[in-house]
């Protein structure tokens, strides 16, 4: 099988890898770059557990080929904290118990961060629809939605 050489920026670092054209960006992140924070819950873009941003745009990494990442800038959950300082969403998710099993958490955090960057003052409905592609089976979403709304309020106050 012929593999293709790809250069991309992941969480601020330049990375190079060889991949089979059939491999998804999620496969590459997990299996070639050892970034296992993004999860495969469905492989069909229906659960959002593999959410990352590519050139600032929120996407499912299971719906992008690894070879498509050439020249792109990718951010995953591993790039959310600044050293030992957690992103406010990460802190609030722990504080509010906005996670139970935690498998959906990386995707939801990446998606929520992307929302707050576009819309620092979302309504509950806006948060719910923005996160509709991130399935959580444990929480009933209640504490997740509250954590996102309250983080947004905190961040507005701080800025």
């Amino acid at each position: 099988m012929k593999t293709i050489h790809v250069t991309a920026t992941v969480n601020g670092d330049t990375v190079e890898y060889l991949c089979d054209p059939r491999e998804t960006l999620l496969d590459v992140l997990r299996d070639r770059l050892n970034l296992t924070g993004a999860k495969e819950g469905c492989g069909t873009g229906d659960c959002g557990a593999c959410s990352v941003t590519v050139d600032g745009r929120l996407v499912c990494s299971c719906l992008i080929l690894g070879v498509e990442a050439e020249g792109k800038t990718i951010t995953t959950v591993e790039g959310m904290a600044d050293g030992e300082t957690l992103h406010p969403l990460q802190k609030k998710f722990i504080e509010y118990a906005a996670l139970q099993c935690g498998i959906c958490t990386p995707g939801i955090l990446v998606a929520a961060k992307s929302l707050l960057e576009k819309n620092p003052d979302p309504t509950e409905t806006e948060v719910r629809y923005w996160l509709a592609g991130n399935l959580c089976r444990c929480t009933g979403y209640d504490k997740i939605i509250r954590a996102v709304l309250d983080t947004a309020a905190d961040m507005r106050e701080a800025s």
């Binding site: 997990r30 970034l35 296992t36 924070g37 993004a38 999860k39 495969e40 995953t76 959950v77 591993e78 959310m80 904290a81 957690l86 990460q90 998710f93 722990i94 504080e95 118990a97 996670l99 935690g102 498998i103 958490t105 990386p106 955090l109």
Partner: peptide
């Protein structure tokens, strides 16, 4: 009381190891 969970940091940073990890 309602303290933070011990696995919280691992789970919000993506380093918690699940079955496929």
């Amino acid at each position: 009381t309602r303290p933070d969970r011990p696995d919280g940091l691992d789970k919000v940073t993506g380093r918690a190891l699940f079955g496929a990890d």
